[in-house]
Simulated scan of single mutants.
Amino acid sequence: MTQETSRQSNSTDAIVIFDIDGVVRDVAGSYRRAIADTVEHFTGGAYRPTQTDMDKLKSEGIWNNDWEASQELVYRYFEEQGQQRHQVALDYQILIDFFQSRYQGPDSQNWTGYICDEALLLQPSYLENLTAAGIPWGFFSGAPCAEAAYVLSGRLGLNSPVLIAMEDAPGKPDPTGLLAAVHQLENQSSIDTATPVIYVGDTVADMLTAEKARLVQPTRRWIGVGILPPHLQHTPDRLDAYTANLKQAGAIVIFNNVQELTPSRIRELLQRPA
């Protein structure tokens, strides 16, 4: 699929930018499994974080980078044992290499790791429906470019979609990457610079990114749409807490699956008072 057909006049209703992890693909058994493996390894097998542990960390809104999240969980474990961070012999690059050996696999040129088993959370037909409705779309993700492209091009069959990835911008909740994705779509489609932007994500950091974009461009409407990760949807107590965190961070509406954000729902959101 190509986005060439999505070029519209400047009368489009909204621009939609998607996060990837937890929105386009389920990462509970891949990125999060790699976090758990990494923390367990660098704590000498003493601590393996649970999904709840990782959710709590992510709810702080600043741990979008999973390498940094892994490092932070290692540090916090040793702090609980009475050590200070400078006493922990932890090489960040070695930690990254270990993480990637689990997520991508031991051969960085021929991936066989957890990334190969991720379930898709949307289908190409969903994006085609947005295009048919005159709604331009793109992606802003904290994942490395190669890993984002693996799912967008390799799994979904998208042909050079607008993508801002880890190498292209500072980490969330810094809004630079979101603004860059929007700018690319504006240039492609001759979109009015006042067109509302919807950012779809599954974490507090995603919602804060939309909030911070509003501070940079206050004359434009920025709408944060939350998606509940699949691993939470069968645990009501954790689901309620996660939902509350997303709302507190600025989510206007929250869905169980991204494909619930249909063109008609988008127009409903735009009709709500700003």
Results as ranks from 00 to 15, higher is better:
Q3W: 14
Q3C: 05
T5V: 07
S9Y: 01
A14G: 08
F18C: 10
G22K: 06
V23I: 11
S30D: 15
D37H: 03
V39A: 01
E40S: 14
F42Q: 03
T43L: 05
G45D: 07
G45F: 09
R48A: 11
T52F: 08
L57E: 12
K58W: 10
E60V: 03
N65G: 01
D66I: 01
A69C: 02
Q71G: 12
E72L: 04
L73H: 02
R76G: 06
R76P: 04
F78M: 08
E80Q: 14
G82P: 06
G82E: 09
R85G: 11
A89P: 10
I94V: 14
I94M: 03
D97F: 01
D97E: 15
Y103N: 09
P106V: 10
S108Y: 05
L120P: 07
L122M: 11
Q123G: 02
A133G: 04
I135S: 02
A149E: 14
L156D: 07
N159Y: 12
S160G: 12
P161M: 10
V162I: 13
V162L: 05
A165C: 15
P170V: 09
G171F: 12
P173A: 11
L178M: 04
I191Y: 03
D192Y: 04
V197P: 11
V197M: 05
I198G: 02
D202G: 07
G224N: 03
P230C: 08
P230Q: 15
L232D: 05
Q233I: 12
R238C: 00
L239M: 12
Y242V: 01
T243V: 02
N245A: 11
L246I: 13
K247M: 15
K247C: 14
A251W: 08
I252N: 09
I254E: 04
F255S: 07
S264I: 13
I266F: 01
R267K: 13
E268T: 14
L270G: 04
R272N: 10
